[in-house]
Write a protein that binds this DNA or RNA. Sequence first.
DNA 1: CATGCGTGGAG
DNA 2: TCTCCAAGCAT
Length: 301
Amino acid sequence: MTDTTTALAPTDAVSLHASVIAWFDEHARDLPWRRPEAGAWGVMVSEFMLQQTPVSRVLPVYEQWLARWPRPADLAAEAPGEAVRAWGRLGYPRRALRLHGAAQAIAERHGGDVPSEHAQLLALPGIGEYTAAAVASFAYGQRHTVLDTNVRRVFARAASGIQYPPTATTAAERRLARTLLPDDQETAARWAAASMELGALVCTARNEDCARCPIAGQCAWRLAGKPAHEGAARRGQTYAGTDRQVRGKLLAVLRASTAPVPQSALDGVWHEPVQRARALDGLVADGLVEPLEDGTYQLPS
DNA sequence: CATGCGTGGAG
DNA sequence: TCTCCAAGCAT
């Protein structure tokens, strides 16, 4: 029961908030989903796209998406396959399907407006703990602990004195986040965005830039001499030759064609027939691909 | 709770 | 070249 969460005394919390928020006011990126006109739908779309995908790649797709489907009901009225097609090469295309499903649920159950309640957001497909908190905080200014990979890393370093947070989010991390969350709602929402941005721009996974960090003087990790991460290097996720790669190739063919695609066109993307069939079956099972009576395939209608 | 799920850029 | 990683979620 070692307590590594009190490196920052509660009395330091106020100055901590002020430092990070002041830094944010000065250095925050001007991202489209942060502009007032984005609205809750814009925030929600951005959060789906940003799940495991860098900002630079999200930007162009986000703009096209919002121009085409400015409200949830606009997307809900489309075939899910159109969402998958518009998703392009962002990766993890199941997110497109879930975003479409979330839009339908919003149109049906919430009168077309993105719900503001955390529990209602959490009930939507594709929205988990993080995204629910992010939308409630960023779009509606509510007070929530927004624990993404950036915030977890900032807290791990500044408060716990370790280089990287654990693989999976722990109860201790949630507790720490709650402790550090400002009491005032407006300040809390600002803090959530600011601490995340700090992790994205300064306190990055590699090449952290402590010289530009507003809380370097209070950072437990830096003060401890920045000890290296203990334990084995995290997973080496090979991609070449996996089902994921095959699925990606198959879906790319289907995205490129408005007309149904014959089996022969799909056979060309991968030499090994067993794996190819398994990948295609998986896509069908996930609802990303629709097999037709005549043996052709298309994006879901 | 460990896995599977895409893709591309940086170091 | 190859490894790591980028605002997670669902099972």
